[in-house]
Amino acid sequence: MLKKFLLFIAASLMAAGFAFAQVDVNKADQAALDGIRGIGPAMSKRILEERQKGGSFKDWADLENRVKGIKEKSAIKLSANGLTVNGKSKQGAAPQAAKGGKAAQADEKQEPARK
């Protein structure tokens, strides 16, 4: 029983590590792109086709201009979910772990600063 429990914990930790991995849009294959929350098979196909047709994406603005369905707001969400362009996150994207967790909610409930 203990061995199964420890195996479950080890597998969970490994899966959590993969969930927060960064994926560069210029290096990723379709499976890696599909692993990003907010990118489905259709969008990953559009990204790969555009990358093949026009070469690597220079920056986030280039990605937004060339790929249908990726604009400022969705780019920020994709970046927060681990997508990068040339290893860089989109400016204005909060890290995934900091969004909506219990710690973030607890910070909001702290008493106001004293004067």
Rank of each mutant, 00 (worst) to 15 (best):
T84G: 06
F57E: 01
A75T: 08
A98P: 02
K45C: 08
K77I: 07
K88C: 07
P95D: 13
K109F: 15
S89A: 12
F57W: 01
D62H: 01
K73V: 06
I70P: 01
S56P: 03
L78S: 00
A93V: 07
S89T: 08
E108W: 11
V67N: 03
Q96P: 01
E49R: 09
K45Q: 15
Q52K: 13
F57N: 01
G101I: 10
G100M: 12
A98I: 14
P95I: 10
N65E: 15
E72L: 01
G82I: 10
Q96C: 10
V67Q: 07
N86T: 00
I47G: 04
E64Y: 03
G55Q: 00
L63H: 01
Q110M: 11
K68L: 07
K99F: 13
D107Q: 15
V85Y: 05
P95S: 14
K90T: 06
E64S: 09
E49I: 00
G87P: 08
R46Y: 03
A106L: 12
F57I: 00
A75W: 07
E72H: 06
E50Y: 07
I76Q: 09
K99D: 11
G54L: 09
G87Y: 02
K73F: 04
S89V: 07
K73D: 06
E108N: 10
K58P: 01
I47L: 03
G82Y: 08
K88W: 06
E64Q: 13
E49A: 15
F57H: 00
A75N: 07
G54Q: 10
I47H: 02
